[in-house]
Design a protein around this nucleic acid. Structure first.
Lengths: 254, 254
DNA sequence: AAGTGGTCTAGACCACAAC
DNA sequence: TTGTGGTCTAGACCACTTT
């Protein structure tokens, strides 16, 4: 068949797409197992290599496979979803504690700058006030799970740059290093977004994985704002559970 | 330049990609404004139409542009984010009420079937028990915002197929049609996922938009499970806010 | 040297839309 | 009829990996 003859419009690309998906299932391929090469598939289906490539591209943006130049295509690993129970009294680290998973925190950077308008509102700051911004990478069960940003009024942590070490969460800093009471979450905002380039790079994920973005505002028990905490976590691994059983406020319907 | 000569490897596709993004900004294009055609761009950059297409494909999967066969490429509309405050005592419709946005609900289908294992656990059902499954499309401010699934034990709604009309939320059915008390949410699970094909079709969105998935379990005040409610909402429009100010349970740290 | 994926060209045919 | 996007072919060259 030299030139296009018949029903090329209803895509044979889909046929190859489905073949690969079935191939993975039937052969019970696990993560990082190799797939047939582009040329092999092109010959098997009697189509051009470009057509095979367009099918593989779809699988790639869906995060089912990945490729390495000079080597081939491989099955992407799809780890199991983890569930984390959210509570006003728990910080992020403590939530991981409660979930009984092994985790670690790496302090990527700490800078100080003036507060943005949003941060001024959340932390009750004046435009000239400065904040510390701590960027952290959280790994859970050996997997890079989330990028976290802590925004903290600078006057709450005098000399923080030199005092912070052996870091494993800001609540530890607040309580053990500065003697504050346990902060309480007064507001949480949960959304989802596409992975930005920094998140893709730091978490080493394909940009097809959606990101759960959680913003928390923490106060001290006396009402003083102490932290604006942003979590950007891989949504394929991270989900949030909220229980209303206990602190049921009686259903005050408006 | 007949055949590939020099540095083709570091992609001129990116050049076209950036050109289009700048083109939209510089010319202050609004939603649904047309973009230059593939052939126009190919001539302007002196490249093949396929190269232009691969750049446009990237912009399409990112949800910045869309195309219509026979017409051309257009700027995708990027609506503003809406914020919804979550509360144990509020159903989804009531949450929209409280947000003071104009909304509507369309009942897409109602079927009955046996409960899945997950539904059996959530609704305390036996394997042979049947449930109604109501599929709803929620539109907010004229925009298709979310696909919702209500799973309700069949014995809670005798003869539902014939009694349901002028539907605007299951809580209305529970209370006005069947005289139940106002259900209370006892558990919420929030995650994010890529848009599945049905959601893409029903909400008329590109599959690049992430989806917030919220699962709620509702009980009657007497503790009887009445509804398993799943919301699949566009994450570019929908985010969830939780306030812990009021019902602070005192910070019982474990 | 041979094989793999990545990029790009040149050109064909199709379905659809506007004139 | 002309122009648009959608699909596919055939083939070139590149960078990288393995033998």
């Amino acid at each position: 068949m030299g030139i296009n003859t018949t029903e090329q419009t209803e895509k044979q690309r889909r046929e190859i797409f489905l073949y690969i998906k079935n191939y993975i299932i039937k052969n019970k391929l696990k993560a990082n197992d190799p797939l047939p090469s582009e040329n092999t598939l092109a010959k098997r289906f009697g189509v051009n290599r470009n057509t095979v490539r367009s099918a593989l591209t779809v699988l790639k943006v869906q995060g089912l496979i990945y490729s390495k130049k000079g080597k081939g295509f491989f099955v992407m690993e799809r780890p199991k979803q983890m569930l984390f129970v959210q509570d006003a009294s728990l910080g992020f680290s403590e939530m991981l504690d409660q979930a009984e998973v092994e985790y670690s925190s790496t302090l990527l950077s700490i800078i100080s700058r003036t507060a943005s308008k949003q941060e001024q509102a959340y932390l009750k700051l004046k435009p000239e006030d400065e904040v510390y911004v701590l960027k952290q990478l959280r790994e859970v069960a050996g997997i890079k799970l989330a990028l976290c940003y802590s925004v903290i009024p600078k006057d709450m942590l005098p000399g923080a740059e030199k005092r912070i070490s052996g870091f494993s969460g800001t609540n530890q800093i607040f309580m053990e290093l500065y003697g504050y009471e346990h902060p309480v979450c007064v507001k949480t905002l949960i959304g989802a977004q596409c992975a930005d380039s920094e998140t893709v790079r730091q978490l080493e994920i394909p940009d097809s994985i959606p990101i759960i973005r959680q913003e928390n505002i923490y106060h001290l028990p006396n009402g003083k704002p102490i932290e604006f905490f942003v979590i950007k976590a891989r949504a394929d691994l991270f989900s949030i559970q909220l229980n209303f059983d206990k602190n049921n406020n009686g259903g005050t319907k408006k």
